[in-house]
Design a protein around this nucleic acid. Structure first.
Lengths: 344, 344
DNA sequence: CTGTTTTTTTCAAACGTTTGCATTGAATAT
DNA sequence: ATATTCAATGCAAACGTTTGAAAAAAACAG
């Protein structure tokens, strides 16, 4: 096919019998260029649709104005909120975000990081894939820090790796959720856990455990079941919970999806919510306000996390030699709705 | 800060007292390079973490192996499914996707397109922003086609603009949904429309109208209300519908979110679904199978759309002079669930 | 008309890599 | 010893742009 070669500065120079430098300066409003020359060149450039080749500029300036955002998925409300936050701060500063979705795949994560570095991006925001976690297996990150490319963790992280991070206080969010259930009179509180190995999963789990301990409620192994954060994955576990000889009177879901799945199962069994069983989710995704009953949940400030992460990035960029990574933890907020508001 | 300048081929050449060409050839396993030289260079390169500068290569080869994906939002299930589909085909071929979210903002869409072209991406997948539509206002796309950069529309489109497109048959999907409601005995069917001006909105609306006409059911203006596709935006409209002297006995929502909002309002009023009122959504997002009652909906094959769009792109890339844009329309499938399955 | 200043333009190098062609050095054939 | 072949490496240009320094052209003063 006859690819319309993009018009270059040289093409324009040829047209005006002048040197590329003159064209470049004319287009950039350099003062040492004759007014007429400038006008003519600019006009012609507009006419033929000249567009600066950013690739060559990137090579010259060693700046790409591009940042990598590496996340496991973009399907959930929270994740898109984070990206929104990053965008809100960085887009106006001229940065382009290169969003890479790893699908929780370690190899893909590794490949993306390499590729981003090869493309000389200027910073990376990373929420690690599920598969990565076990055993602090993070050598693929060494290349990033070796390059002195700013690396910011978002939410999911390698705890041992030294870099800036912006996370939500999942622990206290979970604690508050469980405490609320206890205050509502629930005592047999089950937990639909997230996938093992993720910081978020473990923090929420820990909040659950510690709160029960604090209120001297015995912890039952049977009441703790894993999910993969998707709706479907909570159906069987919830059924199993409700089939127990002593079924729970409340379920704390590791995210909204699994709580909604549990809600469905409970309703199928004819249980009334919150009278027979209390439910709490996590994330405060938009639908939770409109389920029937509406779902009590823990709100994670995704947009804010994105904005804070941006700030961390900028800090590191302008930092001096003795830069020490920063650690931002934003609070999660309990949103009390109908699914747990039991009248006694 | 002392930025660790990435090691270049020249650095390696200096280290071995040889020319950059030799290093380049050694790293690329060129046959005309002495076995020992090759080994030494490769080993050293690995040691110091050499990583090819793709920017310079892009400049040299005029190939960036990067594609732009410009979408209004990434919050909904369908959109992420499409991206998943694009990814599934293009990632293995070595393409990087540069995902740009316009937030339905025309100016941002325009800016992104310019930026992508400046960055010499090799193709663009575009789902146009809401604001863009009125009046076939698409001059910002001319620059793309002028560059002969393949441009593929996804779902939302400028109908008059000539380029390849992959869309879902919203019309027949909507038609099937309404027909199903009619077959279930509903007669006063309302429609919670999407935002005006979008092809998807209009096609679903048309399906609704045509089906009613076909079954000789009178169309009532009062039964048609706009939403913005978000849950919240369906609350007031649904209330208004139910407050009518002759309220509808079924509601066809332009997407799942608004249908779920309507479900909530109906339940608040003590209406039983599907006995008192039937509900149908659109998109088949994962939660719809687990609401109570589960939501009848129309499934859009997002992943397939992404894959088809990739195919269209590849076709155009390998096309000859007389390339004519292709137009793929995939069927939407009615998924019948509890919210409309009325026992007569 | 020469010398000086000022304005405008060009030169050349740089960014990192690849690649056709030329060159070098050695080995082999004559 | 000279010619021929072959393997291994170097040279130089190219991609598109910017930029400091040099050069050219124009304007002005004496």
């Amino acid at each position: 096919m006859p690819v319309n070669r993009p018009v270059t500065i040289k093409d324009i120079a040829r047209r005006f019998n002048c040197s590329p430098s003159t064209v470049s300066r004319a287009l950039n409003d350099h003062q040492a260029i004759n007014e007429d020359t400038r006008k003519n060149i600019q006009e012609y450039a507009r006419e033929v649709g000249y567009q600066k080749n950013e690739v060559s500029l990137s090579l010259l300036n060693k700046k790409t104005a591009t940042l990598g955002v590496v996340v496991p998925s973009i399907g959930h409300y929270y994740e898109t909120a984070v990206i929104e936050g990053l965008h809100a701060v960085l887009q106006p500063m001229g940065y382009t975000l290169n969003i890479c979705v790893t699908n929780e795949n370690y190899l893909l994560e590794k490949e993306y990081l390499s590729k981003l570095l090869s493309n000389r991006i200027e910073g990376i925001f990373l929420s690690v894939a599920q598969e990565t976690y076990d055993g602090g297996y993070y050598e693929h990150l060494e290349q990033v820090t070796h390059r002195q490319t700013p690396l910011i963790f978002i939410d999911r992280e390698y705890e041992a790796f030294e870099t800036s991070r912006a996370t939500v206080d999942d622990y206290h969010g979970a604690y508050a959720a469980v405490e609320h259930l206890i205050q509502m009179g629930y005592r047999r509180i089950a937990h639909l856990k997230g996938p093992n190995g993720l910081t978020v999963t473990e923090q929420r789990f820990k909040g659950y455990l510690d709160c029960l301990a604090k209120y001297e409620i015995p912890i039952s192994e049977e009441y703790i079941i894993n999910t993969n954060f998707k709706v479907e994955s909570s159906i069987v576990p919830t059924k199993r919970l409700l089939d127990l000889t002593v079924p729970p009177d409340a379920i704390f879901g590791a995210n909204d999806q699994v709580a909604i799945g549990a809600m469905r199962v409970a309703k199928d069994r004819g249980l009334s919510i919150p009278q027979d069983i209390g439910l709490v989710g996590f994330d405060n995704s938009p639908i939770t306000a409109y389920t029937f009953p509406s779902l009590t949940t823990v709100s994670r400030p995704g947009r804010k996390i994105g904005m804070e992460a941006s700030r961390l990035f900028l800090n590191q960029l302008n930092a001096s030699d003795d830069f020490v990574p920063e650690n931002i933890v934003l609070p999660a907020e309990l949103i009390i709705r109908e699914s747990s508001l039991r009248l006694r």
